[in-house]
Every structure is written in C-alpha cells, then in structure tokens.
Design a protein around this nucleic acid. Sequence first.
DNA 1: CAGCATCCTCTGTGATACTG
DNA 2: CAGTATCACAGAGGATGCTG
Lengths: 115, 115
Amino acid sequence: MPKVRHKRLDCSPGCAVEGVLALIDGKWKGVVLYHLLSGTLRFNEIRRRLPNVTQRMLTNQLRELEADGLVLRTVFAQVPPRVDYSLTARGRSLEPVITALKTWGDAHLELEKAA
Amino acid sequence: MPKVRHKRLDCSPGCAVEGVLALIDGKWKGVVLYHLLSGTLRFNEIRRRLPNVTQRMLTNQLRELEADGLVLRTVFAQVPPRVDYSLTARGRSLEPVITALKTWGDAHLELEKAA
DNA sequence: CAGCATCCTCTGTGATACTG
DNA sequence: CAGTATCACAGAGGATGCTG
C-alpha cells in the first residue's frame, strides 16, 4: 500500500486534500482515471481518448498510477503485444471523487460548448 | 466568468475533470481552498496553516485562485496592511469536491498517523 | 502494439532580500 | 503585514526515433 511517495504534504488537516491531489495530479491522470471508470482499456484505446498525449507521457502516467495502486496493468504474452489497464479496488474507490470533479466541471466550467 | 485559461484540455467528456483539476492544481491551491471553507482568513493566517509555503508561492496561488474567480481578495486601506481572503460563490460551490477529496484522503491515505 | 531511450524546453517552485 | 523583485534549479512535459 504505497504511501504518498510524493514530496509535499505540509498542511495539517488539509493534508488529506493535498495527498489525493498528489495522486491525481499529473497532466493526464485525472482523465485516465475517468475513462477507466467505464471499464478496462488497452493502451492505444486510452491514447485515442487523449488526443494530445504522447506515448511517453501516457506510459509515464500509467506507471505512476500503477505505482500508487490505483491502476492494474495486465500484460498478455502475445505476439502483437496487448496490455490492459483497469482500476484496482483502490482506484475504483476514487469514483466519487472523480464524479464530483466531473459534476462540478460540467456545471461550472465554460468549455468548448457554444454560448 | 474566467474560462479555463490554462493550456490543457484534450479529452472529450473527461474535459470537465481536467478542467477542475487545472483549477485546483498548483501545489497549494487545494489546501488553501480547504482552509478557506472554514471562513475568511488573512494572508498570514493562511500562511501559518501551510508551514512550508513561501510568501511568494502563497501570493502566487492566491492570485491564481482569484483570477479563476474562486477566491475573493479584500484589501483594507490600513497602515498595517490587511488583506482578507474568502471564497466566492463559485469557490464555495467547490465544497463538495474538496470534501470528496478530504474524505477519500482520510479513508485511503496513510498519512503521518501512527499505525 | 506497446513501449523504451534520448534530448531538450519550459514553467512551477524555492530561497532570499527589499518595500509601502 | 502583505506583498514585490531577482535569481536559480529540478523536474514535468514534449518531440522523435528505435524495438521486441
């Protein structure tokens, strides 16, 4: 059970907040987690959902998520390699958080939607 | 109503998630928001709650939060300067999100708590 | 297909000192 | 008290090419 290996954490009761933020921080972790909520995905499937991510970054973020015990990485010994990514129980437990983020975003963010 | 002036946002439905993350990303924004949930605070009061933050960073983060319309900055024209920081309606609307973060953190994070 | 290795840039963060 | 101004740096993030 990986403790918060990130460096921060200087608050008092707010530590928890920072801690979670440290987990989903990283330019793509949040969205990756969000997409994985829908179910298992293969590397390129995730990649397709993040138009501007580079493999390096995606690999990177996935590895960190894996290290934090949020994502499960399953490698199939096949000729055309296949790697599945899914949420661990811990990862899935983040669902309410991700949902809260998405809900708020949908409600309070002016995205590309016209008007 | 400040749009997401940050650069990212490359997802599809996950945009919202990224968007919010962009707002509370920044090493101290999360905790600052958390502490402001309890009520208005002065600059040094916030600072005292974040042991390791430097004025430069705190000022910085507060200004960004202000620019994003999450925090209200009130300057009093006094001799010993006084500046109050409080949440705007938009900022306060983030409460469920912050709460979700804190709740998850308390439940799933191994912090400094013994055992 | 799903990476890894390199190289490079930029910006977020920090330390320190000064000011109205 | 609540900043502002500099200087400096680590590492997050990106571009590209190669590989089992």
